[in-house]
Design a protein around this nucleic acid. Structure first.
Lengths: 163, 163
DNA sequence: CTCAATTAGTTGACAGTTAAACTATTCAGG
DNA sequence: CCTGAATAGTTTAACTGTCAACTAATTGAG
């Protein structure tokens, strides 16, 4: 039973079903990249991943997004979006504008300061990610993205079935 | 680098580097499977993913684990492990036993009730994961696991370089 | 038109998470 | 042995996240 050295995740998992093994490896890898990104965002820009994520969504939607659209795109609950938006608003990086067509809704937009702050962060953030994924060839990244796309829509279908 | 103009939607998709696209897809897929698993754990066993995860680590280490080992294997900080262990201890599912060799440390173990509870959950949990990943063939899962293994150790190396 | 059902968003309670400061113990060089 | 540095774990503050209950506005069936 003595073999070559293994890291914790490898050891923990080596006798599980393939699907479990893959899932645990996805979790571990994800956590690793996420922790690294969070640390860098904190060190370089004193900000956090969810705030960066929210701003990234807004940057792609210059006319603004309703809270519910943010919630859907970020895949988090509405209450969460309310909180993060509150903080970004206090920091002057986003603003809530009235939605002319629906008085219940807001249109959340980046302020000019928010757009400037995001541009600076986004460039460096992209470098970090490119660096993290530099181990994989373009072809391998394409393969993985395709497998993930299928997995994602399969799980989404399962969820809709249960709903 | 200057190209012809694009509308916002096109730019959002095609300007992104392959690494960013892949990373966003990993995040989304992960979140989807995680949300589903969390929901099922809550509905069927009134428990949570971190508690399940901690118990899974202990189940593989019958002699118990020190807090620090739990922290390393779960890839979370020590304070987090303290909190989750406190709750599981209140529920009677794990216990802190003194480490005979080090009075600073605990050996955390599943109680008999914890072992029973975990066995019931684990079987069903494995079914959920197998079902989620049923879209991929065994060969595809192997491919993806291999790519993730390389990605993981690359990022781990980056982290060690920075440290 | 009217009102019940739905939808958009907020709030509050609680769990999970991190980073940093702290306590207690162990370890190692002198 | 002593003592300063390192290690194991806990605590605290701030933030992220969920869920359920709530308010306000919209919608649609009759």
């Amino acid at each position: 039973m003595a073999g070559r050295p293994m890291d914790a995740e490898t050891r923990a998992v080596s006798d599980d079903h393939g699907a479990i093994r893959l899932w645990l490896r996805m979790l571990a890898t994800n956590r690793l990249v996420e922790t690294r990104t969070r640390r860098l965002l904190q060190e370089r820009y004193s900000t956090t991943l969810p705030r960066f994520d929210l701003m990234a969504q807004l940057e792609r939607a210059p006319r603004g997004l309703k809270m519910g659209e943010l919630s859907k795109r970020m895949m988090v609950t509405g209450g969460n979006v309310t909180g993060i938006t509150d903080l970004l608003e206090e920091e002057g990086l986003v603003e809530r504008a009235a939605d002319p067509g629906d008085r219940r809704a807001w249109l959340v937009r980046l302020t000019p300061a928010g757009r400037r702050a995001f541009a600076a962060m986004a460039e460096e953030h992209e470098r970090w990610i490119v660096e993290s994924f530099a181990e994989l060839s373009g072809r391998e990244m394409t393969t993985m993205a395709a497998l993930l796309a299928r997995l994602k829509s399969h799980v989404r279908a399962l969820e809709e079935r249960d709903a």
